[in-house]
């Protein structure tokens, strides 16, 4: 062998190493099937929890956003107001800003709506004429501007009162913020715990193969050469686990949503097509990232020990 000094010390293409590493990954998974199953199922369970949680948070957020978006200012006019002044009022209202629409509701229309809403539960025929005033419905582009816009409208001519459900708007906006904040915090915690559990699971794999790693070091394998197959193995396991979870969530959501639409149609549940593609890609990406990071943490701990 001494005449063969042609062993290159560096220079092979990345493809060479990728092929070596992939072969290592396949061999390792084949020879440690139980450890692989443990890692894959851990990722799957955690991705399932994470995925369902995301669905709940996203739907709650959508609900809160929609409810808040429905908030509008109701402007009741006094008896001096006459329908010829509608356009004047509209232009004055638009000038205030943040006003999306100004919808005139004549008192007859208001009475008709009231009658419809009460649906014969109360006999309105006893009333002497129509007691309701002319009014306007004024939705704004951002619920945060409900109050200032309402205050400015109240100062316009012939406005008797304004009503914008101050308390409800405030509560809904607060709920919306809380849902987002709590959702974010729980997502971060779930991600951190997933990472911790995965890294510990992979740590067991590393521990089971510590002799193998020692041999690799003994024959002169650089740390990165030892590290990469483990990282790729983690990525593979993370990808399989999260893809399984994403599939399960996808199927369940597609089954459950039509049922929910039937039973609680007033709730704005997001359609699968709106949410699932992003969730699927996100979960698989997260699974890969968690697998890679968990492997990196575990193998680094061992290599530096």
């Amino acid at each position: 062998m001494s005449e063969e000094k042609d062993t290159p010390r560096r220079g092979p293409s990345g493809g060479y190493y990728i092929e070596c590493f992939l072969r290592e990954v396949i061999t390792n998974i084949r020879h440690n099937p139980m450890m692989s199953v443990a890692s894959v199922s851990t990722v799957m369970v955690l991705a399932l929890i994470l995925g369902f949680f995301v669905i709940i948070v996203v739907n709650l957020d959508a609900l809160a956003t929609e409810l808040t978006g429905e908030m509008q200012i109701k402007v009741y006019m006094d008896s001096n107001f006459n329908p010829e002044q509608v356009n004047t009022f509209k232009s004055q209202a638009y000038e205030i800003g943040h006003v999306v629409k100004v919808n005139f509701v004549p008192k007859d229309e208001a009475f008709r709506r009231l009658r419809q809403r009460l649906n014969a539960k109360l006999d309105l025929n006893d009333l002497d004429g129509n007691p309701l005033p002319d009014s306007f419905e004024v939705p704004v582009d951002d619920p945060n501007f409900l109050e200032p816009v309402a205050q400015k409208i109240a100062q316009l001519a012939n406005v008797a009162t304004v009503d914008y459900g101050r308390e409800e708007a405030y509560k809904l906006m607060k709920l919306n913020h809380v849902i987002r904040l709590v959702g974010f915090v729980i997502l971060v915690m779930l991600f951190a715990s997933t990472l911790l559990i995965i890294s510990n699971t992979i740590r067991l794999t590393v521990f089971a193969r510590r002799k193998e790693i020692d041999i690799m070091q003994l024959v002169g394998a650089a740390d990165w050469f030892i590290r990469w197959p483990f990282i790729l193995e983690g990525v593979t396991q993370g990808m399989i686990g999260s893809a399984l979870a994403a599939t399960l969530i996808d199927i369940s959501y597609r089954i459950v949503v039509p049922q929910l639409h039937k039973s609680i149609s007033f709730l704005p549940i997001m359609a699968p097509a709106q949410i699932m593609p992003f969730l699927n890609i996100g979960l698989v990406f997260l699974g890969c990232a968690v697998g890679a990071l968990g492997s990196l943490i575990s193998i680094n701990r061992h290599l530096k020990a």
Partner: peptide, 24 residues
């Protein structure tokens, strides 16, 4: 072969060197 792979030895060199070492 693994001890050669870690050095980045080319695919054509590996079988030749391994067989030589095993013959030895």
């Amino acid at each position: 072969a693994y001890a050669l792979q870690v050095t980045g030895a080319s695919r054509s060199v590996i079988p030749r060197k391994v067989n030589k070492a095993l013959t030895l």
